[in-house]
Design a protein around this nucleic acid. Sequence first.
DNA 1: TTAAGTGCAAAAACTTTGCATATTT
DNA 2: AAATATGCAAAGTTTTTGCACTTAA
Lengths: 151, 151
Amino acid sequence: MASHTAASLKVELNERGWRLTPQRETILHIFQNLPNGNHLSADDLHRRLQDQGENISLSTIYRTLKLMARMGILRELELAEGHKHYELNQPYPHHHHHLICVRCNTTIEFKNDPVLRIGAKTARREGFHLLDCQLTIHALCPPCQQALGLP
Amino acid sequence: MASHTAASLKVELNERGWRLTPQRETILHIFQNLPNGNHLSADDLHRRLQDQGENISLSTIYRTLKLMARMGILRELELAEGHKHYELNQPYPHHHHHLICVRCNTTIEFKNDPVLRIGAKTARREGFHLLDCQLTIHALCPPCQQALGLP
DNA sequence: TTAAGTGCAAAAACTTTGCATATTT
DNA sequence: AAATATGCAAAGTTTTTGCACTTAA
């Protein structure tokens, strides 16, 4: 869960018989330069790559996102938009969780160390190797409570 | 987040200008009779309804699942299969979280009250009305660690 | 009565796959 | 050289939508 350089990514890939390609390196860079709190869908990433003149196919993007999520480099977020979003899987103290309004999709990030510790402990107890731990809270934001006439 | 009867569901729907239809009642029953720890995708639910001779269209199922999730009656789970699953949103002490192997999709449920309290507190602090709170842990199970030759 | 809900079929959105070609190790 | 990765186009899955009809309140 440490931050990656192209070199360390290469090592980690090679250990598993995989390869460092220019596409994978470019995609990693995009995420590393993403302002904190941003996250991209496959399509967002594709567009962003095209904007900077990189032509990487959507297939490769999907394959790379899944690979990096399984390696623990990216975390896969299920926000409210109906498709997955990805962001760098940052270690403590940057690690965070999400509070989401199910009506308007407003999303608030928050940090919580105890939850992170509980997640780590739970995985360890079951013998699992932790990749990511996210608390997702579904709720109604104040304006949406109003709109629904909730007490 | 209390358990629902057809009558209380009706009240809650009517309060918001919505209606209790036979389809909605039938769907609620399916979930109420689901053994603890089970969860259904839209398609699972559709098949299950057909098996018991109920003809409810997939459109209605999708619309109902979303509605009930937004009301806090069902919780929407993002497990690893690539589509949503739903289960009854049960209050403490039945409330639970999920530990998922990203490689083989093995899923383990676990309970954790502190996380639930943290979720409730976080929502309250932001003025949100809590609907659901789920800790999702992505990890590699022991066999999959082996298969990948992890130390 | 009338606003909301349903079913159908069609479309949309998102993701995966087969295969020929290119590239990393 | 051998195995992995890519790009393309095509197909697959899951979910949403428009519309005419039905139904709960």
